[in-house]
Simulated assay, not measured.
Amino acid sequence: MTKNTVNEVERMVITRVFDAPRELVWKAWTDPKYVMQWWGPKGFTSPVCKIDFRVGGKFLCSMRSPDGQEFWNAGEYHEIIPHEKIVSSMYFADSQGNKVEPEELGIEHEAIDGAYDVTLFEDLGNGQTKLTFIGNEPMESAKNSGQVEGWNQILDKFATIVQGLAQSK
């Protein structure tokens, strides 16, 4: 078994299989009009999402909590292999995309030095796609801080969007 590691630290890895073609899963993951529908855990909305989807391009998305508090994430794309792989950096930000340290927001976050987020899209045949998200944080701290739970809630919302797109094809 191969671990997804940088410096031998086990990284957060979350995998889902969708009953939809890879191109459709890719579209739901990369098109801001769909990202706004699934970005953020259960109960959160995303009123703003700007994506310059190219290597070197940046993104900026907001998450609004049920009580109206806003959180911003921004990042940059480092590698894009269409319908297969996205490598990106992501960080907490202000509404202008400027980096904000997690501690300033009262958020516990431990990143692995030199690690980027990696999203893989694998065609399983029979109209199914496997999505694997590899985060830039250690699995143990991601579990303890609630990030694994949050990403699973995000992927639950994402699954609903993918299912709707697949049914409308």
Rank of each mutant, 00 (worst) to 15 (best):
Glu110His: 01
Gln69Gly: 01
Glu70Lys: 13
Ala93Arg: 01
Gln69Thr: 13
Val87Leu: 14
Glu76Gly: 05
Gln96Ile: 00
Pro66Asp: 01
Asp94Arg: 08
Gln69Asn: 07
Val87His: 12
Tyr91Ile: 03
Asn73Met: 03
Ser88Trp: 15
Phe59Asn: 11
Lys85His: 06
Glu70Tyr: 07
Cys61Gln: 13
Gly75Lys: 02
Ser89Pro: 14
Gly56His: 14
Glu70Ser: 08
Trp72Asn: 03
Ala74Phe: 01
Glu84Gly: 04
Ile81His: 12
Lys58Tyr: 02
Gly75Tyr: 01
Asn98Met: 00
Glu84Cys: 03
Val87Thr: 11
Val87Arg: 09
Glu104Val: 08
Met63Gly: 09
Val100Gln: 11
Ile107Tyr: 06
Ala74Leu: 01
Glu103Arg: 09
Gly106Tyr: 05
Ile80Asn: 00
Ile80Asp: 09
Ser65Met: 10
Leu60Gly: 08
Val55Trp: 08
Asp67Gln: 13
Tyr77Ala: 06
Phe71Thr: 11
Gly57His: 11
Ile81Leu: 04
Pro82Trp: 06
Ser62Gly: 07
Glu84Asp: 15
Gly56Arg: 14
Lys99Ser: 10
Glu108Gly: 06
Ala74Cys: 13
Pro102Lys: 13
Ser89His: 11
Pro66Phe: 01
Glu108Arg: 02
Gly57Trp: 09
Gln69Val: 02
Asn73Cys: 06
Trp72Glu: 07
Pro82Leu: 10
Ser62Ile: 04
Lys85Gln: 03
Gly75Asn: 10
Val87Ile: 15
Ser65Asp: 03
Leu60Asp: 03
Met90Asp: 14
Glu104His: 08
Pro66Gln: 05
Glu76His: 04
Glu76Ala: 14
Gly75His: 08
Gly56Ala: 14
Lys58Pro: 05
Ala111Pro: 01
Tyr91Asn: 05
Tyr77Pro: 03
Asn73Ala: 14
Gly68Ile: 12
Glu103Tyr: 02
Ile107Cys: 10
Cys61Pro: 01
Glu84Ser: 07
Cys61Ile: 06
Asp67Ile: 02
Glu110Ala: 02
Lys99Thr: 10
Gly68Ala: 07
Leu105His: 08
Gly57Pro: 13
Gly75Leu: 01
Phe71Leu: 14
Ile107Trp: 08
Ser65Asn: 04
Gly57Tyr: 14
Leu60Lys: 10
Gly57Glu: 14
Ala111Thr: 15
Ile80Cys: 06
Gln69Met: 09
Glu79Val: 07
Ser88Pro: 09
Leu60Arg: 07
Ala111Glu: 10
His78Thr: 12
Ser95Thr: 00
Gly68Trp: 08
Phe71Trp: 10
Ser62Gln: 05
Ile80Val: 03
Glu101Asn: 13
Asn73Arg: 06
Asp67Glu: 13
Glu79Phe: 00
Phe59Ile: 13
Pro66Val: 07
His78Phe: 12
Gln96Asp: 12
Pro66Glu: 00
Ser88Met: 15
Ser62Met: 02
Gly75Thr: 10
Met90Tyr: 05
